[in-house]
């Protein structure tokens, strides 16, 4: 493994390939770190920026929606549910597979992609 040893030696002097997100080292207390960030004493490493046309969390503009139900028909994960009384939809992020078929099919473009991908949350909506 001489080739590999040379390569490893070279790596010693290179910048770390990994993006240390959100902090360089695991903090002793997550809450303490978040508090420090809130006060402006510590900084978080931002995630690697996403490219253009990234398929992230889907944004829904309720006012534009005409209730045609095409998105309900094409959604593979049943993440879009129609509300017959309001004639609007509700979109469940936690079921979504981010295929983007609803975004393509929407005739009034009320569904759009955002760059958001950190979706862990305590609340379902």
């Amino acid at each position: 493994m001489i080739t590999m040893q040379k390569e490893l030696f070279r790596q010693l002097f290179k910048r770390a390939f990994t993006n240390q997100f959100p902090a360089k080292h695991a903090p002793k207390s997550v809450n303490a770190l978040l508090e420090a960030v809130g006060k402006g004493k510590a900084k978080l490493n931002p995630p690697v920026p996403v490219p253009e046309n990234f398929r992230g969390k889907i944004a829904y503009d309720k006012n534009k929606c005409i209730g045609c139900q095409l998105c309900v028909k094409v959604c593979p994960a049943n993440a879009v549910v129609f509300k017959p009384k309001e004639k609007k939809i509700s979109y469940h992020t936690f079921r979504c597979t981010f295929c983007g078929e609803c975004v393509n099919v929407c005739p009034v473009k009320c569904l759009t992609f955002t760059d958001e991908f950190l979706l862990a949350d305590y609340k379902k909506d």
Partner: peptide, 9 residues
């Protein structure tokens, strides 16, 4: 990801 919008699927 650059081409299709996601890394794997």
């Amino acid at each position: 990801e650059y081409l299709t919008g996601n890394r794997i699927t």
